[in-house]
């Protein structure tokens, strides 16, 4: 028996602000309501409602054939999702923490990402879950996983920073015929400052489009996820204290990268700072730098610089983790250095 929509999933309908987590829940709920091919698989997502309660109440509403509590075997249930996608269903897989996506690396990169190319058809599949540090989660509950998959043609990678984008992007991801890895920063899940009233209508945010969250003319910060908010904070401080006009671009989608948005901004400011919470070596900053070199070298007035986490596992202790993570002050210092060119 289908239950009525729980009241906590109707905040947007009532015109109340929602958190990023609630925005994702609403997006999932609406897509499941409007398309019966959409179903969920993951650990503890049914009875328990998920480790972070993203799918609270879904089991009661949609039943255990569409909200499937799986064995603890990420490779197995991700592969099963791929099989179901072959047959025309549109599975959404939850990784309890994205750190645990690694057992599914084989089936994602070898099987899912290659399906269309191999002639095995489209793969409408979303793999979503919490990422990111700052919650004292230690090495196995804090990682960002984008670059483990960035190198795999056939995948899309999405990483929203606001409730509006999160809801619009999860809907786009579910409707996409390509496999999408969808990263949700734990630190943003319930951040009160991010709460916002969303349109009470069916809207989507397109995959592959960056968003200029702050206009500027002196330098460009290219970033995504939780670092968007630290970068904006830094930009405001730099404007007040240094009179610097800093543009901030939220990539929102990492694969495919929105080259046009980046290049257009570079041509305006001539200086680029890439900020990511992910570790340094092999981080997305490297790819962005080479693309700017290829496409806008003559527009540069300084080196392309980056602010990132350090190249280490994510440490548990607060003092260590705060040192590990890029902070607003790091963005400020790097921007001042770059502005000196």
């Amino acid at each position: 028996m289908e239950q009525p929509t729980p009241e906590y999933l109707q905040k947007t309908r009532r015109g109340e602000p929602v958190t990023l987590l609630e925005a994702i829940s609403e997006g999932l709920f609406e897509e499941m309501s409007s398309d019966e091919r959409v179903f969920l698989l993951g650990e503890d997502i049914g009875t328990y409602g998920g480790a972070f309660k993203v799918t609270r109440g879904f089991l009661e509403h949609f039943g255990d054939r569409r909200v499937i509590d799986t064995p603890i075997a990420e490779g197995g249930f991700t592969g099963a999702a791929a099989g179901a996608a072959h047959m025309g269903l549109r599975p959404v897989v939850e990784m309890q923490f994205m750190d645990f996506i690694s057992p599914a690396y084989d089936v994602i990169t070898n099987y899912i990402a290659t399906s269309l190319y191999r002639g095995a058809g489209p793969m409408p599949l979303v793999i979503r879950g919490p990422v990111g540090g700052g919650n004292r989660g230690g090495p196995f509950h804090s990682q960002n996983v984008e670059m483990a998959f960035f190198h795999t043609p056939g995948l899309k990678i999405v990483y929203p920073s606001t409730p509006y984008d999160a809801k619009g992007l999860i809907k786009s991801a579910i409707r996409d015929d390509n496999p999408v890895i969808f990263e949700e920063h734990k630190g943003l899940y319930r951040a009160p400052a991010l709460r916002e009233v969303l349109p009470d209508e069916d809207y989507v945010v397109p995959i592959g489009k960056a968003n200029t969250v702050r206009e500027g003319k002196d330098l460009t910060v290219v970033t995504y996820g939780a670092m968007v908010h630290k970068s904006v904070e830094a930009a405001e401080l730099l404007e007040k204290e240094d009179g610097l006009s800093v543009e901030v671009i939220d990539l929102r989608t990492l694969l495919p990268l929105d080259d046009d948005a980046i290049i257009e901004s570079v041509k305006k400011t001539g200086k680029v700072l890439v900020v990511h919470e992910d570790t340094r070596t092999g981080g997305i900053a490297g790819e962005i730098a080479i693309r700017i070199s290829e496409k806008a070298f003559e527009w540069l007035d300084g080196p392309i610089l980056r602010v990132t986490a350090i190249d280490s596992p994510v440490p548990y202790s607060g003092s260590l983790e705060d040192y590990f993570l890029p902070q607003t002050s790091d963005v400020v210092k790097a921007a001042r250095y770059l502005a000196g060119y």
């Binding site: 592969g79 099963a80 099989g83 179901a84 072959h86 599975p91 084989d106 002639g119 095995a120 058809g121």
Partner: peptide, 28 residues
Amino acid sequence: WVDYQKGFVGPVSPLGTMVEIMAGVTLS
């Protein structure tokens, strides 16, 4: 290779994967 009308999905070289895939096919 694959033919959904005739009803087969060819394998991939990493072994064992097709058991996962077919778990999902039959789940559907």
